[in-house]
């Protein structure tokens, strides 16, 4: 494929937040916006307790729901494998946010070119611009424990398998989170516990309705009605068909 993947090995995360700050600097984010969120999991009772910090950001699905539901075609696949938002096309309709099976796409207040505050989809880009120039994403390059590693797609998958074998003794429930239902992802996780412990669905998938929307209704609809009208109609369809309600995000 010639594409890239990122592995987040939660068994190596010490919760230092360096990735968050490096990402904010790289991507020009205000202090209170972050592409990365964290949740910690404590299992067991004192003193037999295991603690795992989970660092979470957009998974960059191979078959991304957000890309399918976007009425503006503002979301696309980069040749690196990243799923990226074109903020100039985005109208802040929140379909991506409402339909992301992982609760990762977020619509937040951003600044447009004129410095106005506007609602725009805002999420991890897998540092697409940097990667295209051959540079590692900011989070991976600052991670001194190598809990975040970035590289050629297949090598990363192999690395994940190897790490899984290494940690199985300590974390019997360990697994690689790379859900088939969305065609696999470009950020994969080595989880220490079952996905549900981190508020993730084991069988996260692209809803059939999203496929229909993208592949049939939307192109036709756009042609007939124009994008803005479609955004309104699309909102109704999208919300009725596959809105699963608020996907709550793991806090600490």
């Amino acid at each position: 494929m010639g594409q890239y993947r990122m592995l987040v090995d939660v068994t190596k995360c010490i919760g230092c937040y360096s990735c968050r700050v490096a990402c904010q600097m790289e991507n020009d984010l205000p202090s209170d916006q972050s592409y990365i969120s964290f949740c910690e999991v404590e299992k067991g009772e004192y003193p037999n307790v295991e603690w795992v910090m989970h660092r979470f950001s957009c998974l960059h699905c191979e078959d991304a729901v957000c890309e399918k539901v976007c009425p503006q075609n503002a979301i696309s696949y980069s040749q690196t494998g990243a799923v990226v938002v074109d903020q100039e096309q985005c109208i802040g309709c929140e379909y991506c946010e409402k339909n992301c099976p992982f609760g990762r796409a977020k619509v937040e207040l951003c600044q447009d070119k004129e410095g106005n505050s506007v609602s725009r989809a805002n999420k991890c880009t897998l540092c697409n611009g940097k990667v295209l120039e051959g540079v590692t994403p900011a989070c991976a390059s600052t991670c001194y424990t190598k809990a975040i590693v970035f590289g050629e797609s297949d090598e990363i998958l192999q690395k994940a398998e190897q790490r899984l074998a290494e940690v199985k003794d300590r974390y019997p429930d360990a697994n690689i989170y790379n859900p088939e239902g969305v065609g696999g992802t470009h950020t994969i996780y080595l989880l220490a516990h079952k996905p549900e412990e981190y508020d993730l669905e084991s069988d996260a998938a692209t809803p059939a309705s999203a496929i229909i929307w993208k592949d049939y209704a939307q192109p036709l609809g756009k042609l007939l009605l124009g994008a803005t009208t479609m955004a309104v109609i699309g909102g109704a369809i999208s919300n009725r068909l596959f809105n699963k309600g608020e996907h709550h995000e793991g806090g600490e």
Binding site: C16, Y17, S18, R20, V21, A22, Q24, M25, E26, A138, S141, T142, C143, Y144
Partner: peptide, 23 residues
């Protein structure tokens, strides 16, 4: 100021920085 990276030749950073280093 734009951003910061760890100095690869410094014995304490070796190319990476912590959150404080960036922020």
């Amino acid at each position: 100021l734009w951003k910061l990276e760890g100095h690869p030749d410094h014995p304490r950073s070796r190319g990476t920085l912590c959150a404080r280093g960036h922020g």
